[in-house]
Nucleic acid binder design. Structure first.
Lengths: 237, 237, 237, 237
DNA sequence: GATGAATGAGCGTTCATTCAT
DNA sequence: GATGAATGAACGCTCATTCAT
């Protein structure tokens, strides 16, 4: 998505390619050092382009941050539906969604931390766009929950809103508290323990039976989303 | 606490008073605009002191950030035990702890957001000190959970570690997602709904009975911690 | 010479040209006002460049001082051998060396005074490099003296070490005591009177005869080094 | 001497005592680090007084430099005549004067270097006063030379002006080139070698005989001036 | 389309000086 | 007489941005 960021170059494929080149560098640098501390010079160097080139595809530094955040949130919106593809059991779908969410985050700790640290560095109007994108991701999770309720697997009166946020925060926490969790377990354990804790709160009697059966069969039945890089080896904090 | 921040002035009461004066200003400004965007000039102006005075009590800008973060985390460590004072029922104590936690956070949204955004801006050694302080607050919550388990109010096999983080993230979320929650409910509703959701996951049969009885009697039985300013009216995002 | 001073620009000719531009301005300003009193803004203005440009070619203010001092000492090392070129009579060579030395100094009173005032403002390691360069210049003078001894023009047992320093200090004195000497004579008279005084101490009987003959023929037989600007008209003190 | 430096305190003995207290500290600090790099705070600390106290006895920082320089030059003017006291032989008096001069300088390398580095940091009118004081010291040496000429010990046509400066520069060189000479010899050797070199230039036939006889009898016949501290152990450069 | 040398506003920080105590 | 907390002008330096090549 190019969304409102003006470019002096007009060839769309070039825009795509060049931007990807330095936005990736920017996400890493912003995530590790912070937005304000990172200089355009550093981004240009890390991306192997000149300072001038960046300014051909972007109007100012904030544009880079905006594109970086968009790119991170896009990954969420892309990976979660992909992980649900082909699954029909509501409980399985929710579980797959959370696994997918946590894995994308694990693969991009820097990006997730960046979203928390620097969304506020955008001007108001863009901050709102980012928050909308976040709500869209939330909606993906919420939909899975509603499916479970509709299927009678969750109690009918559960607090969907809060449960959604609970799951979202749980996923983000893998990045935000990476300094803690990384030393204690891997992502899959984390998700399994998390789901067990969070879902026992809401499973109906029938749901509990289904959940227990699934857990007995396969400890982590949801395939790891493909095409994701291994969790970055960069120090997360 | 003066903790490792050197001052040219040596009178302790003066250090306390002056630092409080500009650290308060700094927390607000850092929280609203971010650490790097906020200038010393702005802090001095907001605190009603001269630039030079700040540098009598602090060695550089990072010291200000450090003191600001310490001050925020100290508030957590102070308020939670205070809220538990005099209570003996384990469930009541846990509930009181979460209410207190969320209220301190609500009273200092800026500070909490600051901790998330800018802890990384500290040098490594100080970052570690801040994280230690965070773990201490977590331990306060974890202790309440363990009490509930020991009293047979929670299932014996619950995941204390993750439940603690769940509660912590839930409390932080009031600040981190303030842009969302503020439009939907107030803190007390938020805590009540959250506790209901999170605790149903772990309450034993007896615990469920106790919890239900308590909820029926008083919607928010835990007194609001005294001496806390009203939730700041500053726009949180 | 670029010697250990890092530059953000990498084109050597550009480095040479730009540095010359502001180092010249710096020598004048440092020499007149002192290193610490002179601001980067002043240097930039005097050199007709922007502040930022200076920092493209230099890492900090001390680099400017270092380059300035190197440039002054380089002039000595360049001019003295040039003045000796083509001369073979030992006495004539020594005389030419002293004339050349004093003329470079006269052409750069500011620079010489600067070396005395501000070498200590360099960090230790660089101060040592500057002192080494000074010793090299001294060695040029000492060599001329040794030639005279070897030719039997000076007494065999003279104190070469001290005589060298005497000549060096004599030359520097033209700059250091400019406030005094400028009102009394010009450089050439100064050198002639100085040589007469200093050499009578050491000339052998044969040497005295040679020296007297030379002095009678031409008051200042050594051509003024070419390509040197006229002694600066700036007030030396 | 209080000379033109205003004091808020009016009791003369107090002025004398307090000023001595911080001027001594200032000479050391200025000499070691330079005038501009040294802060009033440092001087106050080194002298064991408060910042405010200094400003009771001095109007600004330049006053301190002025008083420091005066104090250094006063020592020269005091020590040289004292060393001549009781001596009547012209050659002995000159020798004693040079020994005394070099010893005062050796005892106060910092102060001598300071005079070279920072006289220019004074405003014009005060710089002139300092230079006058320097000329007075020169006159002490010149007088000894003239005595030698009048006694027929020196050639009648010698260049008194330049010889004086030669001796003065020679003495100063012990401080200015301390980094070199300190490793090679002690002050007394330095003076002996220097006198031998410089005087052979000017001694008449009779003078040479006298000088040779004196040198044979006692290598360093001139008593070391009393009441001088041992040469400072501070690193001179 | 791509480069990177050049600009200068604006930052963090210092320190001589003042003045209430 | 003595103190040292408070002030703020002014410094060195950075870095987003431009534009000639």
């Amino acid at each position: 998505m190019i969304s409102h960021v003006k470019s002096k170059v007009e060839v769309p494929e070039l825009i795509e390619r060049r931007r990807a080149q330095f936005i990736d560098a920017a996400i890493t640098l912003f995530g590790k050092q912070g937005y304000h501390v990172t200089t355009i010079r550093e981004i240009a160097e890390a991306a192997g382009v000149s300072i001038g080139l960046i300014y051909q595809y972007v109007q100012d530094k904030e544009d880079i941050l905006y594109l970086a955040l968009i790119s991170v949130l896009d990954a969420y919106e892309r990976e979660i539906p992909a992980a649900l593809d082909g699954l029909s059991d509501p409980l399985e779908r929710l579980s797959a969604a959370v696994h997918a969410y946590c894995h994308v985050i694990a693969a991009n700790v820097n990006g997730t931390v960046l979203a928390y640290r620097e969304t506020k560095s955008l001007r108001k109007e863009r901050r709102a766009l980012i928050q909308e994108k976040e709500l869209k991701t939330n909606a993906l999770v919420a939909a899975c929950i509603v499916e479970c309720v509709d299927a009678g697997l969750f109690d009918a009166d559960i607090d969907v809103e809060l449960l959604t946020y609970q799951i979202v925060m749980f996923s983000h926490a893998w990045a935000l508290k990476a300094w803690r969790f990384r030393t204690m377990m891997n992502v899959d354990e984390y998700v399994d323990r998390g789901l067990k804790l969070m879902l026992h709160a809401v499973l109906s009697t029938r749901g509990k039976r289904t959940f227990a059966r699934r857990a007995a069969n396969a400890p982590s039945p949801v395939a790891r989303p493909k095409n994701l890089p291994e969790p970055s080896l960069l120090k997360p904090c």
